[in-house]
Design a protein around this nucleic acid. Structure first.
Lengths: 230, 230
DNA sequence: CGACCATTTGATATGGATCAAGCGATGTGG
DNA sequence: CCACATCGCTTGATCCATATCAAATGGTCG
């Protein structure tokens, strides 16, 4: 199904963790900034698995460049994407021992890796760090709730919401370059690839977006997109 | 829309909180058991609002008896139910300052109420309490992820999953008494009331369930229900 | 008994899935 | 440099699961 090319990868050097260094705990506001300049770099090729569903959750990851999807294969063979992670985003942090979804690099992707045990044990000593973990998980919770609400909307609304979300997350201007394929988008939105494609074409006809190439999107009218998102 | 009957309610007595008493912190495994015997009791009538969406999240609640739904009204007027909370369940705990959903009693419901500030300030001093909050939110995250996965399945699969979930949560035997209406179920599953009703009738024909009355369900074949849940 | 409300059942409509073909970009071998 | 295979995407035709509209049924409470 996936071309799981096991690249020769940078070895994990778990020494450089939060535990061994004694970093002044993360700043109050944002969670887990202590991760900014640490962790071992790892590179993954397109569609390469980073971890599998129900594998032990030994590491936590931060996207440096590229993009990551988490997903689950449903019993009927369809794939549901749980989230996209973009540069700066942290993923793979679980409270329990196992990952709930698998994670795959979308294109060539660089991440930094941290030992979960280091993060957790830090939280056992430092309440502020513990709060950062709580905040992080709460943000994930909020994201999944929004995703859940997306899945009960019409195809147009789902696609429009998706484009607005991606624009917020990875574009300063009205132009954006999607890192993921139509199939990825479809599996994220709970639609088929054909429906996503048709819907985008419709948005072009409505002058809500421009589509200079299949992965380049120009938001021509955020207002229209937002109104669709009824 | 809702018969928001403001009952004369027991006054909240915020003195009896975790903060003022110095409770030996919650046991390691389960989160927030310290709530078991504390908090002020409050009673709500059928369909009464407990808190509204985007109200300040001043309190945390534990269901004593009855049942609670959290929900959001979508811009097109439909209602999406985010969760059902049953006796023993905790709800209304947010990291941020505002509730993300509103909460309503389904039937006559008794809850116990805690000040959020007490819970949070406890976590600032006690890492184990902080971890309990993290664990609680992670469990909510997991629940919402499952709910999200439910919304991309067929109507039969959604209803079957719902019945199995409810059976796990509120029945020791194969008989269960649903606290919520068909409309509530429909709004939880992202279906119409007619589809829920038809699907249940179909499950009766298939001898997967019995339906002695509309809210009494007998699980005749968990196996069939689980297999539907493909 | 009669009104009311929740639920079920029936008839029809429709949005998105499915099946199938065409198109454009990219890469490969002759 | 061109013929051609491949791959991701788009477009077209048809089908089907669920929504919608409408009516019948049944339980509850005055």
């Amino acid at each position: 199904m996936l071309t799981h090319t096991p690249l020769t990868q940078t070895q994990i050097r778990p020494a450089a963790t939060l535990q061994s260094r004694n970093i002044p705990t993360a700043t109050a506001g944002g969670a887990l900034e202590a991760f900014d300049l640490m962790g071992s770099p790892m590179t993954y090729g397109p569609n390469e698995e980073i971890y599998g569903e129900s594998e032990p959750a030994e590491f936590v990851y931060r996207v440096v460049s590229g993009a990551v999807r988490t997903c689950k294969i449903l019993n009927d063979g369809r794939r549901q994407i749980g989230a996209f992670y973009l540069p700066g985003d942290i993923f793979g942090l679980e409270v329990g021992k196992e990952h709930q979804f698998s994670a795959e690099a979308i294109g060539k992707t660089v991440v930094r890796v941290f030992r979960r045990s280091a993060v957790v044990s830090m939280a056992e000593r430092d309440c502020e760090a513990a709060r950062a973990l709580w905040t992080f998980t709460a943000r994930e919770l909020h994201r999944v709730q929004e995703h859940m609400l997306l899945l009960v909307k019409s195809a147009q609304q789902r696609v429009a919401s998706f484009l607005l979300e991606m624009s917020d997350r990875l574009a300063a201007t009205d132009s954006l370059d999607l890192p993921m394929s139509r199939q990825d988008i479809a599996d994220y939105l709970g639609l088929t690839i054909e429906t996503v494609s048709r819907t985008m074409s419709q948005l072009v006809s409505d002058s809500a977006i421009g589509l200079p190439s299949s992965r380049k999107i120009v938001l021509r009218s955020r207002r229209v997109l937002r109104e669709l998102n009824a």
